[in-house]
Write a protein that binds this DNA or RNA. Structure first.
Lengths: 258, 258
DNA sequence: CCAAAAGTGTTATGTCTACACCCATGA
DNA sequence: TCATGGGTGTAGACATAACACTTTTGG
């Protein structure tokens, strides 16, 4: 019969004669990359660690999985605990990380989740203000802000995933509120992909009769210098399946000899 | 300090007063969905379990992760052990599964990998013939062949992943050999997506000057009833980044009232 | 020379992009 | 009435799909 053995038993590398009837014990955690749009930029929610290891460093929120819950449930529970948000089905699992030594204390395998939220700002204020912050992903990726564990890699992978999902799923609508303007939605694509999109063409792709966006009749207040108030829309059913916008791949093609 | 505790300690559900300073121990495994083309169909490699639980049932190959190796290394090692194949970088992690009770013996979280191989047939013959088999994925998915654990779901997710990757990566070339005909390559897309592709248009998309395929000068032997021998190509560098073929989405659009 | 499958040409249709232009509104 | 951004029209470039047609081989 298979039996749990303490980590130390398997600690000294076991190259050839590995006995599969005994296996090492791991801790399993879920970590969440919580992304949000703010000021037309992509931001990630970070918490400051209060305990060793990496005490005082920034990290993404997470916690231990319990044996009585699924991985998705663990992520949902942790998200609620850390941010107070109880939104179903905007959590996407995107990777597992188990490099030896990634946690100096013990063997930890973490399953990483991606959550796209709007208005985390209020949530951050609710938690211990000094312990949580929204920072631009650019700062977390270029090393300006150093992250604990292998969280920099996890954030990098999450952003890469979002870039794909933006084209393949309706994740874009998770960045905006229940009602939004076309420009707001366009800002999401522009920020995540780092491109400029023609406003006219973007509009035509999105406001069709297919059910991408549905006009509410209400209008948004224009900014300080005036301007025409934009129509407010809500997301239609089409977002369940895909996205109306495709990323125009940078023309790698058409580069013959010359 | 954090301490490992045996599984049973946390077994009786701990709803509210959960103590994060103690955490449950898990076993961590890697499972592999090994896909291959055979007879113009998509097949998956299954092994017959020799021990309880699910003794005698079909399952996908896998094994325990060791603390001294990364998840990727564990998958690579298991792949080599099970099939004798030592190909780097065709293993893709695509999901983690940790539902309570998925393994009746203990708490197990498994990290699932996808491997696309050509010519597993010889490998299968090498292993204990009665213990391994290639079966069409359709049979594994529609329940014709019942799989152990939650492996049916894992295979389902793997196939779904391949369908996406076929459009986004160069995974198609992993299904064919070092040299291949255009028709062979087209069969991959047709089998995985379950569509018919115009041979003429497919050819035009693939045999360009961009470096998708490179002619070898040699030709394949035609089938029994004769026919023009097809040119043999090898994969070019373009496959590193993407695929020359995009899946034409079934026109969900353009369905007004009427 | 006939069947079969590879490979080419051609054209209609649809989609994307750039950019000129009009519109509605708050100050 | 002016500045500002929302919103519309349109023509060219480009990509796709359909299918008729030619070529090359083994029997």
């Amino acid at each position: 019969m298979v039996r749990v053995v303490p980590t130390k038993t398997a600690d000294p590398g076991v190259p050839a004669g590995y006995d599969p009837s005994r296996f090492p014990a791991f801790a399993v955690t879920v970590d969440m990359v919580i992304l949000t749009m703010s000021d037309s930029r992509l931001n990630v929610l970070l918490v400051r660690r209060g305990v060793a290891p990496f005490k005082g460093m920034w990290a993404i929120p997470g916690g231990f999985k319990r044996p009585t819950e699924t991985l998705d449930e663990a992520a949902k529970r942790e998200l609620a605990q850390e941010t107070g948000v109880d939104s179903t089905s905007l959590l996407t699992q995107f990777g597992a990380y188990g490099d030896p030594g990634r946690d100096p204390r013990m063997n930890v395998v973490t399953v990483a989740y991606l959550a796209v939220l709007r208005d985390v700002g209020a949530v951050v204020a609710g938690t211990d203000a000094a312990a949580a912050a929204l920072v631009p992903v650019s700062q977390a990726l270029n090393g300006k802000i150093e992250l604990a564990f292998d969280h920099a890699q996890i954030v990098r992978d999450a952003v890469e995933r979002v870039r794909y999902d933006l084209e393949l799923t309706g994740i874009a609508t998770a960045f905006v509120g229940p009602t939004f303007t076309i420009a707001e939605l366009r800002a999401v694509y522009e920020a995540v992909w780092g491109v400029h999109l023609d406003g006219a063409n973007f509009r035509r792709s999105v406001v069709t009769e297919d059910g991408w966006v549905i006009p509410t009749g209400r209008r948004a207040r224009p900014g300080a210098p005036g301007g025409k108030p934009a129509e407010l829309y809500r997301a239609g059913r089409m977002w369940k399946y895909s996205s109306p916008i495709r990323r125009s791949q940078p023309n790698e093609r058409g580069k013959g000899g010359s």
